Simulated assay, not measured.
Amino acid sequence: MQQQANRRRKKKRKNRNKVIAARLIFAAVIILAVVLLIFGGYKLYGVISDAMNDDVSVTTVTVTGRGEIKQTIVEQFDPGMYDEDSLRKDIETKVKDAGSEVSAEELDIEDGKAVLKMKYDSDDAMSAFNEEVFYADTIDALKKQGVTFDTAAEAAGGSHAVIVSETMDIRCPKKILYTDGDVSTDSENEKLAHCTTEGGALALVIY
């Protein structure tokens, strides 16, 4: 009798351990699925955002939530005045001279327009490459670099700022909360600003 009772207890323990193991495996699978869903969704969001940002008609800078700075340069192109091969070589040379922080992703010439897509590892790299004022960082980081903000800008509640000295559109990863200079926020996109600068004036966008 005692042996039978011991066998029953061992069998119950084995069954209980199997149930616990099955529950742990199930929980691990659920956690993994959630992680993959979140990560995959984040990547998908990035792909969709990038695809939307590709459709521009004027020079546009995109500051992404991943900290990347992308620039789409749109210029008129007259084949009678410019040679396409020479233009491509000039761009390659300039990008090479700029170092590893700058890369040219694509150059399309069509319908009288040249569209060049650039990528920069930092706002300093973009500023140096374009020989224009360009800041894109947290407000705290910009203050440490000597950038000052007026009372209205401080009170806007944003955490990041973009400052430019060149006419362009600016796409931000979050809603734009404040602008200064000749800047207008797009009526259909709260993350898009149209900046017009002349005579060395600066445009400020806070998000």
Rank of each mutant, 00 (worst) to 15 (best):
residue 55 D to G: 01
residue 86 S to Q: 09
residue 16 R to K: 07
residue 187 S to R: 12
residue 69 I to N: 00
residue 166 E to V: 15
residue 60 T to E: 03
residue 164 V to H: 04
residue 118 M to V: 11
residue 191 K to Y: 12
residue 137 D to I: 00
residue 132 E to I: 13
residue 51 A to D: 12
residue 40 G to E: 02
residue 189 N to F: 09
residue 89 K to D: 13
residue 10 K to R: 14
residue 87 L to W: 04
residue 177 L to Y: 02
residue 102 V to C: 03
residue 16 R to I: 12
residue 23 R to Q: 14
residue 90 D to K: 13
residue 31 I to H: 04
residue 161 A to W: 01
residue 24 L to R: 11
residue 176 I to V: 15
residue 21 A to W: 04
residue 115 V to A: 06
residue 15 N to M: 11
residue 42 Y to T: 10
residue 59 T to W: 08
residue 29 V to Y: 01
residue 65 G to C: 10
residue 69 I to T: 05
residue 103 S to I: 06
residue 22 A to R: 08
residue 102 V to G: 03
residue 21 A to Y: 12
residue 155 A to N: 14
residue 82 Y to M: 15
residue 18 K to T: 06
residue 38 I to V: 14
residue 45 Y to C: 09
residue 61 V to C: 09
residue 182 D to V: 01
residue 173 P to A: 04
residue 191 K to I: 00
residue 28 A to P: 01
residue 184 S to H: 04
residue 107 L to A: 10
residue 141 A to Y: 03
residue 200 G to W: 03
residue 188 E to I: 03
residue 183 V to G: 08
residue 206 I to N: 03
residue 157 G to E: 07
residue 116 L to D: 08
residue 10 K to F: 12
residue 174 K to P: 00
residue 84 E to W: 03
residue 140 D to K: 12
residue 110 E to H: 04
residue 86 S to F: 05
residue 128 A to V: 05
residue 100 S to L: 10
residue 189 N to H: 02
residue 76 Q to A: 15
residue 10 K to C: 02
residue 100 S to Q: 09
residue 149 F to Q: 10
residue 47 V to L: 13
residue 24 L to G: 02
residue 25 I to N: 00
residue 163 I to H: 05
residue 26 F to Q: 08
residue 18 K to H: 06
residue 136 A to Q: 10
residue 157 G to T: 06
residue 18 K to S: 03
residue 178 Y to S: 08
residue 93 T to K: 14
residue 113 K to L: 14
residue 130 N to W: 03
residue 17 N to L: 14
residue 172 C to P: 00
residue 89 K to T: 15
residue 47 V to D: 14
residue 105 E to M: 13
residue 25 I to Y: 07
residue 72 T to I: 15
residue 94 K to L: 12
residue 19 V to D: 06
residue 136 A to P: 02
residue 121 D to S: 15
residue 75 E to K: 15
residue 81 M to A: 15
residue 148 T to R: 05
residue 19 V to A: 13
residue 38 I to R: 09
residue 125 A to T: 09
residue 195 C to M: 11
residue 62 T to E: 11
residue 43 K to I: 09
residue 105 E to H: 00
residue 147 V to L: 04
residue 45 Y to R: 11
residue 65 G to N: 14
residue 47 V to F: 11
residue 72 T to C: 06
residue 62 T to A: 11
residue 14 K to M: 05
residue 130 N to H: 06
residue 68 E to H: 09
residue 14 K to L: 13
residue 149 F to I: 07
residue 6 N to Y: 08
residue 127 S to G: 04
residue 31 I to N: 04
residue 97 D to L: 13
residue 174 K to E: 15
residue 8 R to T: 14
residue 181 G to N: 00
residue 154 E to I: 10
residue 105 E to Y: 02
residue 133 V to I: 14
residue 19 V to M: 12
residue 56 V to E: 03
residue 106 E to A: 07
residue 177 L to A: 01
residue 206 I to P: 07
